[in-house]
Design a protein around this nucleic acid. Structure first.
Lengths: 334, 334
DNA sequence: CTGTTAGCGCCTTCAC
DNA sequence: GTGAAGGCGCTAACAG
């Protein structure tokens, strides 16, 4: 049909005015007669004209978009955060431009580069990025906030972190508070930074209470939880509490203990981490640490917007997950 | 520090060549001496030059981005589909530009308009958009695929649908296959198009088998499932099968029936819909229809890419969810 | 109030 | 192989 989209010039011709007037009329400037504005509107409608946002951006030197760099194969966590980012962005009138960070760091650099000149700000979530690489590839002139960075971060960037250490400490302290003294930590896989931080928090709390730490290797899967529970049942060292580094493992632990005749939480209390939807629905309901992922995303956008205005990052912002007490550490309900 | 990002002109000056040569050198054109290419590379590195993608796009008249329009407050379904879209897009070298579709249709039009000239193609997921509005606001010159549209769709757009009717039929037939004859459908909320389609599939299958349909009102919540189960227990009309329009309701139904002394699946079999993560983990594990949401997203991108090349939409594409048989309709395991 | 004129940063014919 | 010049579509001075 129509070979090419109508441009502002076509509208100008059709309305019998200059392109400047068209621009003014359509962008709601005040200095235009209502008459011309109407004529322009009509012409635009007639031609099915839609402004070319790319061109406008080039001219205005701002894009109305925020770039988001996230890992290639992201799971629930990033999906949820993304939802928050999305909500926050649209509240501020921004769109989100997504780009995948590959494990290959060359491609990652490309992914970030592909954002330059198309976004007004950047959100980088790159958990498994070689430590000092991030600083190297962030474009110097784009405001950026990095979420849970592992290594060096350019000083101009805003840092937002989930405080895994404090959260793990909180869970461990909760177990201590309800009277447990032999608390075992079922950690996540080696090489996962979160796993290490959570173990650290556990050890801190245990040490502070003058108790003895004991750590089992885990892998973030339900099967891993089952295996760990079997170990505990077999060796009978009198564990009375388990802090699993994520919910899925905890969900494996609980029924296995029960099948062996142990009462949860009376004999052994169990705590998880993440507050996945399952945690609430499982029986007995699981005590866990809730990371408000959507809120996290909203917060990230708010901080980015502030950074875009002031150009001065605030101190790193730590988000502390909330303890959610349910049946596996609480009073056993009917 | 550096006031402004370096442009191609800065690089040209620094390298002592023309902007054209810089462009050629950096874009890997063949007609450049290796010597100049090297000089240009050095200059670019020296200045920390990163090409301005927006400008390039304007000049090339293509953006390397795919626009995604999705509902304002999207849940798990869209998050998962988005993951698939993301994966597909990056496989084809595209980035994703997200835009929220508000309930307000004026703003929705704006959201779509804001894509024009920034994307090479469009994916529209707008479940609760006034039927004939979509056709009006889609830019005429941008290839688009619409997912699960409710009303009129421009002829140039590619349609991708989840076949709710056939899926509901399949589940109902499965219940019939295992010998059930009094199958009740617990439908989703009124006003939800999916609910209606699933009920339709149920009715089709029941009618085809010469059985009698019975439909209970539901609301997609666990509580709704519990309430429905209570109704069934109370009236004792001899139902031997329940097809719930989503997993959550089914998850409410099963334990309620069991508490009343009914065996699942022997006395009453139960089927859900969606295959949420819970379905597998619940006891007894739930039979359900699995919508491969990530795959759906991948498929959408593939079809969009094809459409961008050929400009000719294929026939509407129906995706059929897969029946996943688990314990609530299968052999009761130890 | 309106039109004319430069760019925004890049790519690409077209000559040399 | 390389440079000069025009243009992608739009906005923002600057004149009238």
């Amino acid at each position: 049909m129509n070979k090419r989209s109508a441009t502002i010039r076509d509208v100008a011709r059709e309305a019998g005015v200059s392109v400047a007037s068209v621009s003014r009329a359509l962008n709601g400037q005040s200095n235009v007669t209502e008459a011309t504005r109407e004529r322009v509107r009509a012409a635009a409608a007639q031609l099915g004209y839609v402004p070319h946002v790319g061109a406008r951006n080039l001219s205005l030197a701002r894009s109305g978009a925020i770039g988001v760099v996230l890992p290639d194969l992201h799971g629930e966590f990033f999906s949820e955060v993304l939802r928050g980012l999305d909500r926050g962005a649209s509240a501020h009138g921004f769109q989100l431009l997504l780009s995948n960070m590959h494990v290959d760091s060359e491609l990652s650099a490309a992914a970030i580069g592909a954002m330059n000149g198309r976004v007004d700000g950047l959100v980088v979530m790159a958990p498994h990025l070689p430590p000092n690489l991030l600083a190297a590839m962030l474009p110097p002139n784009v405001p950026a906030v990095v979420v849970n960075p592992v290594g060096e971060v350019p000083p101009a960037a805003q840092i937002v972190r989930v405080d895994n250490v404090a959260a793990a400490r909180a869970m461990t302290e909760h177990l201590i508070d309800i009277g447990k003294r032999h608390i075992v930590h079922l950690r996540g896989p080696r090489g996962n930074i979160e796993s290490d931080l959570r173990e650290r928090g556990y050890r801190d709390a245990i040490a502070a209470a003058g108790l003895t730490a004991r750590v089992l290797e885990g892998d973030f899967t339900e099967e891993g939880g089952i295996a760990a529970a079997r170990t505990l049942i077999a060796d009978r060292q009198g564990a009375d509490g388990v802090f699993a580094a994520n919910d899925l493992m905890a969900i494996g632990v609980v029924p296995t203990l029960r099948d062996a005749g142990l009462n949860v939480p009376e004999d052994i209390a169990v705590g998880g981490f993440d507050d996945t939807p399952l945690a609430r629905l499982v029986t007995p309901a699981l005590t866990t640490m809730r990371i408000e992922m959507v809120d996290l995303g909203l917060d990230v956008i708010n901080r980015l917007v502030r950074l875009m205005e002031s150009r001065e990052p605030d101190a790193p912002y730590l988000r502390l997950p909330a303890l959610v007490v349910r049946q596996t550490t609480g009073a056993a309900h009917a």
